[in-house]
Computed example of a mutant assay.
Amino acid sequence: MKKIRDAQTIIGMLEGGELAAALSGDITETLTKLKDLSDTMGRKAKVKGKVTLTLDFEVEAGSVNVLAGIDTKVPKAQRGSSFYWITDDGSLSTEHPQQTDMFSGPRSAAQQS
């Protein structure tokens, strides 16, 4: 009777070795994404991610069925912001709605008496 007690061996055997390959791929992908995020955020920025392996065991009549799951978490890339003014009708404007445009050309001068 061959006994398997080592976690590395068990994980390596699950799903005919495909689980270990998928786990390795997810770890590499997560680290690549974290490095890319860190590079865009600056030298001292901390970026955290997580790869979780879950093993569910189902025992029945002296046998066990192992169901595995891999979950990865990586923060979303930070996006820039854009500033606009809101007009009275709810539109966006790049110009302050209460200021006149001094570059739009000459305006007619009103005659004062």
Rank of each mutant, 00 (worst) to 15 (best):
R79P: 02
T87E: 05
L55V: 11
A21N: 11
T94S: 08
D6P: 04
S104N: 09
V74C: 13
E29S: 14
T87G: 06
T100V: 07
S104Y: 06
L92E: 08
M102E: 14
S104L: 06
T94K: 14
E15N: 13
K48C: 10
K76C: 03
A45H: 10
K73S: 10
Q78N: 14
L23I: 04
S82G: 06
M102W: 04
L34Y: 05
K48Q: 09
R107I: 07
G16R: 04
A22T: 02
T30D: 00
T32Q: 12
K33L: 11
A109S: 12
F83V: 14
D101P: 01
M13I: 05
L53T: 02
L31D: 03
L31G: 04
L37E: 05
T52I: 02
L53C: 02
I86C: 10
S108E: 12
S113F: 12
T9Y: 10
E58R: 07
D89R: 09
K73A: 06
G12W: 08
L92V: 12
G90M: 12
I70S: 05
M102S: 05
R79G: 06
M102K: 14
S81Q: 10
T54R: 11
L92T: 12
G62H: 09
T28S: 11
S38V: 07
L14M: 15
M13T: 04
L55M: 12
I10P: 00
M41Y: 01
D89S: 15
S93L: 01
L19D: 00
R43W: 01
Y84E: 10
G16S: 03
G16C: 00
S104V: 01
K35T: 13
V64S: 13
D26W: 03
K3D: 05
K35S: 09
A77R: 10
F103E: 09
G80W: 02
P75D: 08
L14W: 08
F83P: 01
